[in-house]
Nucleic acid binder design. Structure first.
Lengths: 362, 362
DNA sequence: TTGTATGCGTTATCAG
DNA sequence: CTGATAACGCATACAA
């Protein structure tokens, strides 16, 4: 902060008023004379006065900041889905005069970060990203008394904490059903890391749909890794150059789906025609033609769609609401993904499944 | 902050020492007795004491935070290259006890953000992203007296400010030379937004290399947009379904390059064999097989490579250095991109350029 | 409607 | 080596 920074005292001297009156005028207190307020506001603007953030925090006990801890994925990678979530949350914070604090940190040190946030009073609340099944952060945050909202869930109990999640189980069981209805019997799953609760749920949805039809699940068709492009490429090559490849693939993100498509291209297999694909589409902005534009022509990929950026917005609103009114209990929101039919899914016409056999199941 | 937060006064009472001594012990002042210090440190750890961030800021005048303003690109999109830069910067901040403040903001309001940062004392310095040619933020930040480092440059003068940049002009002229040496005469450029200085420089490199060989540049082969996947797809379809397509393409990022490859796949054109491609590779983590692993087999794409995450690390170090020692003048770093030959470039064998004609130019 | 006085939790100055 | 005391800049209970 520059040495010549103007503060409340100086401003009040210039105006010939007390600090109290000036403070009240600027903070919108009703009791101050409108004429006085106008003078104060004008002078503040003219002198470019803004209250010191640390002084205000110290006096009020509020930091006006929300903490986000970016967990580094395997290989020290930052999850790209995370970026769009942040973009959404950031919009909301900006709108309400809140600051976004970001900490990039490796998994093991993560609990320290929350302790630090809490005891140093740097933030008024935190958003929990990438919750694991039975995530230890939840009891920790509860014990710290730090307000938090989880993007995703950690358990099946509904939990005594606020969360917003996509109905991943339903999305993946619906997608599996859809493929099965098209006659597919060998359906692969290119999943995210199943330590993450969302990926665990996606597999549950996949498996329950298979089970409901009496289809056996083949472990050779199920994968669980960080959702990056080369992952999709690698496992696709593995499956489609090996024996007994699948006729359809579920993919947990459009990133590995791109790798899958790339591999198929090299192998001369056409998405839709030769292999059906359904991917989960988080509406990542850098893959969208018109930013967030939803209304567009029939997309290339058939997808389960839910905007992660919109989730970021809503989670940000939730944490701000919770801070403003702590007495209201935990809130939960479960969003349904939209199934958008594109050109990457078609009836199964695998030669080794004779038409008569396939027809039987219709 | 919880009501039962332990503060310096409470801690000093517990220890039977003055606040001064406790503070000094914890802050590593040399004059305090080592035995006393050990006692203090132990008690602080046991009681989980950490100094209040806002109180410390108020007392020292330092915020221990660096501001990053995320400019929303066209269509309200957050630039994905940005995320990896942040990841790198965040590592350094964490290491030095600094906080990263993120503001997502639309272009027009951006100057307000810097004024706010400066006058409210929220940050000790800022990192300027996506500098435009003649960017108005530089004079503004100078006048505000807020330390800053620019990722990229705004002008040719070298500038009276600190920056770190890739030698974009050289990278693109080298890449153009490389393609020309392979016999390519119609070379397209899928560039970023040329209001951005880096993209402007890339085009300069491309054009200067063409000019040096007396190759004419065809405006129908040059594009300038946000570097997203569908952009590469769209302009590739446009070029390769139209008359007189290029035989080689320079792409400003692997994102539009993926779109390009997708389009070529649909059109039955093989990268390398039918169309040569060189892309700028920022080492985006979600596209890397092993995170940041550099040593790998011959890559699919021929690329100009420079890790944007490594740039983030270095820029963060630079801003911290500048804050620690403001008397040292502006620092500049110009990084050379590495040209990595992959499988997407090959000698031109376009039928309409007869071998004899091509041979003449050698 | 405005002003006075005090506290927020540190760090820094000066004394011992 | 340690301690009392004064900033730091704002918000607010209380007084007028």
């Amino acid at each position: 902060m520059a040495r010549d920074t103007i503060n409340l005292r100086r401003l009040s001297e210039v105006l010939g008023l007390s600090q109290t009156t000036v403070s009240r005028a600027l903070n919108g207190f009703p009791e101050v004379n409108e004429k006085t307020r106008a003078r104060v506001v004008e002078a503040a603007r003219r002198l470019n006065y803004r209250p010191s953030a640390s002084a205000a925090s110290l006096a009020t006990g509020r930091a006006c900041a929300i903490g986000h801890v970016v967990p580094l994925a395997e290989h020290m990678m930052i999850n790209p889905h995370f970026c769009d979530f942040l973009a959404g949350a950031g919009e909301v914070y900006a709108q309400f005069g809140y600051e976004m604090l970001l900490r990039v940190v490796a998994q093991p040190q993560e609990t320290d970060v929350y302790r630090d946030f809490a005891s140093r009073g740097r933030v008024d609340g935190v958003v929990v990203h990438g919750p694991l099944t039975g995530d230890p952060r939840i009891p920790l945050l509860k014990s710290l008394g730090l307000p938090f909202v989880v993007h995703g869930r950690c358990d099946d109990g509904g939990g005594d904490y606020s969360w917003l999640d996509v109905n991943n189980r339903r999305a993946f069981s619906r997608a599996t059903d859809f493929l099965a209805d098209l006659g597919h019997r060998r359906i692969a799953l290119i999943n995210g890391l199943e330590a993450m609760n969302f990926a665990y749920r996606r597999r549950q949805g996949y498996e329950s749909a298979l089970a409901a039809r009496g289809l056996e699940r083949d472990p050779a068709l199920v994968f669980s890794e960080d959702m990056v492009e080369p992952y999709g490429y690698r496992v696709a090559r593995q499956m489609f150059t090996g024996p007994n490849p699948p006729t359809a693939v579920l993919v947990s993100s459009v990133l590995p789906a791109m790798g899958l498509v790339r591999a198929l291209g090299e192998l001369g297999l056409r998405p839709g025609a030769d292999v059906s694909i359904i991917a989960f589409d988080d509406c990542l902005s850098f893959l969208q033609p018109g930013g967030e534009a939803k209304a567009r022509e029939v997309p290339f990929l058939t997808v389960m769609r839910s905007s992660i950026r919109e989730a970021g917005r809503r989670v940000a609103e939730m944490i701000l609401e919770q801070i403003a009114a702590p007495e209201t209990g935990p809130r939960h929101e479960l969003w349904e993904a939209e199934l958008v039919i594109g050109r990457s899914t078609a009836p199964c016409r695998r030669q080794r499944a004779p038409l008569s056999a396939a027809a039987k199941s219709w």
